[in-house]
Amino acid sequence: MSERTVLVIDDDIDLVEIIRVTLEREKLKVIDAQNGERGFALAKERRPDLVLLDVMMNTVDEGFQVAYQLRGEPLTKDIPIIMMSAVGERTGFTFDKGRDAEFLPVSEFLEKPVSPRRLVDLVRKHLPTTT
C-alpha cells in the first residue's frame, strides 16, 4: 500500500492542522509549508501526489506565483493543485475563477472557510488514480 502524500502550503498553521486531521482520517499523509518558497522546495524534494495551495500568504498573490513555479518545474509540473481562496474573494473582482482558470495552471479552487467534507471530495477527485 503506497501512502499518498498531500502538501499543504498555507501560512495559517491552525488551518493546516484542520486539513491534516481531516486528510489523515482519509489515510493520506500530510506535509506542510508556511510560505511559497519553502513549499516549492518541499514539492520538488518530496513530490507529493497533490498540492493544496493558499492564494494569499506574504503577498496577495504568492499562491499564484507558486502555482506557476510548480508548473514550470519538470519534477512537479504534473502534480494537481487545489487553490484555496480567501473569504470574500469569490465574486472575483481580484481574480475570476472562470476566466483566470484558463491561464492558471490549477485544477480547482476551494473557497474558505474550508469545509472538511468538500475538501475530501475535491482531494479524492484530483488525486491521481495511481502513484
Binding site: D12, D14, V87, R117
Partner: peptide, 16 residues
C-alpha cells in the same frame, strides 16, 4: 476573515 474562517473550519471538522 482568516481567524473567522479557520475557526469555522475547525468546528466543522470537529463535528464531521
Amino acid at each position: 476573515k482568516s481567524p473567522v474562517s479557520t475557526a469555522r473550519s475547525a468546528i466543522e471538522a470537529t463535528l464531521e
